[in-house]
């Protein structure tokens, strides 16, 4: 079974989070859940490790955060993508598309690889 290595993920988790938040404000647990759903089980984040990334994005002013009262009566921190974050996401997306094209051309498409590797969840 093939595992996505931490090195492969490093540097891309920020982009993944920015992409999730593009749809609208959200909070830690919901972001992790959405990420796991969209990744279709291939990517399984160590859930606690998402917070340092969120704080880092907040420090870089790519996200804004606000505490609000949740429906369960607890205080909850919501993160929202702001202008600088949108620009960063667009730039990262372009970079990823270029890299993806290069990898596909040089390494070959996944279909050509034999035998087809089974992907297992990667932990951050």
């Amino acid at each position: 079974m093939t595992r996505l290595s931490k090195q492969t993920l490093d540097g891309n988790v920020e982009t993944l989070i920015l992409a999730i938040l593009e749809a609208g404000p959200s909070y830690g647990y919901a972001i992790v859940k959405e990420l796991n759903q969209r990744a279709d089980g291939i990517l399984q984040l160590g859930e606690g490790t998402i917070y340092p990334v969120l704080y880092r994005l907040e420090d870089k002013k790519l996200l804004a955060a606000k505490w609000r009262l949740a429906e369960n009566g607890r205080q909850r921190k919501y993160y929202r993508l702001i202008s600088k974050g949108r620009k960063a996401l667009a730039a990262n997306r372009r970079q990823w598309q270029i890299l993806s094209t290069v990898m596909r051309k040089v390494v070959g498409s996944a279909e050509k690889l034999s035998p087809q590797p089974k992907l297992k969840g990667a932990m951050l």
Binding site: Y27, G28, Y29, V32, E47, G48, Y51, A70, N72, R74, Q75, R76, K77
Partner: peptide, 14 residues
């Protein structure tokens, strides 16, 4: 304290 509230909320929901 803020970090704790956030992590606790996460874990409770999970």
């Amino acid at each position: 304290a803020k970090i704790r509230v956030e992590l606790e909320d996460h874990l409770r929901q999970k």
